[in-house]
């Protein structure tokens, strides 16, 4: 019985991925991608990876989906009907004749790209062979993770890996988010935001944002704290706080300009910076990089998680706000050649 749920979920995720890549319009592509991400989140939950499920649903489907929808305003404006964006990639066929799968792919080319398809087929065969033939159980690093859990300062194994055994990865990850933000700023106008003193009072969105924003903040904090014992933690909290920022921004609150620029800079770099300083401090105390003193490991992890979550949330909000303002209606900037 339960095997059929897994087979159904796996088939559904593959079908959604194929439909997503062959959808005739970009809008359909985005919404199928949403559905794909959420189906995948269910698959993570079935595989016992609840932390991953939350992260996938929140960042992989939610946040990226929001960015993709915002990008639709550039690539497929709503005023022109949704099918018009087909002309861009259907060089060979008109929108009328490319009714289904053929349109988004290389309709103009006579021959299929054989090499990529051959590579894909080889990868497919190898991975499937691994899946079906190489059956063994136990092993991996589970035992090691379990043995050391008592010395990690937390009770949830995934948090222990993220913030203790492999804090190096997590530290650099916070850095990657920061670098992505800086790179996105560099692509645009360098990260300045239009000052919005005037709050657009939408009669529904404004009161809803007043109710939902504190709730999101609270649930984010709850998840952050919960990460010590159960699925949850810094990234899940960060996405909820980021969602709060995005909601407030979209409801018209002056999120990006309410703090002085230097405060934003402090907020954005706090996670990465404090993480690094703590690592250096432990190292100068004779330990290894990120080797927490045993007695304070739990509290130190909570501190690092809080700051990392704040930084990532600020970065997500800033990335979205910047994306949103990239679509300037008065796009009169002179392109530098």
């Amino acid at each position: 019985m339960s095997v059929w749920i897994d087979i159904l979920l796996a088939t559904l995720s593959v079908a959604l991925a194929v439909r997503c890549l062959t959808a005739p319009t970009l809008a359909q592509c985005v919404f199928l991608f949403f559905a794909f991400g959420l189906t995948l989140a269910l698959a993570w939950a079935r595989l016992g990876a609840v932390d991953v499920a939350i992260a996938e649903a929140a960042i992989g489907a939610g946040f990226l989906g929001v960015l993709l929808i915002d990008a639709l305003r550039d690539f497929a404006p709503a005023k022109e009907a949704t099918v018009e964006d087909a002309e861009g990639y259907a060089a060979g066929g008109s929108a009328a004749e490319g009714s289904a799968a053929g349109v988004p792919l290389r309709a103009g080319r006579a021959a299929l790209p054989l090499l990529p398809l051959a590579i894909a087929a080889v990868v497919f065969v190898l991975l499937t062979a691994e899946a079906v033939l190489n059956v063994r159980d136990g092993g991996g690093l589970t035992e090691l993770a379990q043995e050391n859990l008592a010395r990690s300062g937390v009770d949830h194994p995934v948090t222990a890996v993220l913030l203790n055994y492999r804090s190096y990865d997590t530290w650099l990850e916070v850095g990657v988010v920061l670098i992505a933000l800086l790179a996105i700023f560099a692509v645009g106008n360098g990260g300045t935001f239009a000052r919005r003193d005037h709050v657009t009072h939408d009669p529904v969105l404004e009161p809803v944002s007043r109710i939902l924003a504190p709730v999101l903040f609270l649930i984010g904090g709850f998840l952050l704290f919960l990460g010590k014992y159960e699925p949850g933690g810094a990234f899940q909290a960060a996405v909820l706080w980021g969602a709060m920022g995005i909601l407030l921004y979209l409801a018209g609150w002056p999120v990006m300009t309410c703090l002085p620029r230097v405060w934003w800079q402090v907020l954005l770099t706090a996670g990465f910076g404090v993480f690094m300083l703590l690592g250096l401090a432990f190292m100068s105390g004779g330990g290894a990089w990120f080797e927490y003193p045993l007695a304070h490991a739990g509290n130190l992890i909570l501190l690092i998680e809080t700051l990392a979550a704040l930084s990532i949330a600020a970065a997500l909000t800033a990335i979205f706000a910047f994306f949103h303002e990239m679509h300037a209606p008065d796009a009169t900037e002179t392109p530098e050649k």
Binding site: V204, L205, V208, L212, V215
Partner: peptide, 16 residues
């Protein structure tokens, strides 16, 4: 909260 979010989303989509 789902009620709140989905009715708001419905309103925003139809207004847009």
């Amino acid at each position: 909260f789902t009620l709140l979010a989905s009715s708001t989303a419905c309103y925003l989509i139809s207004r847009f």
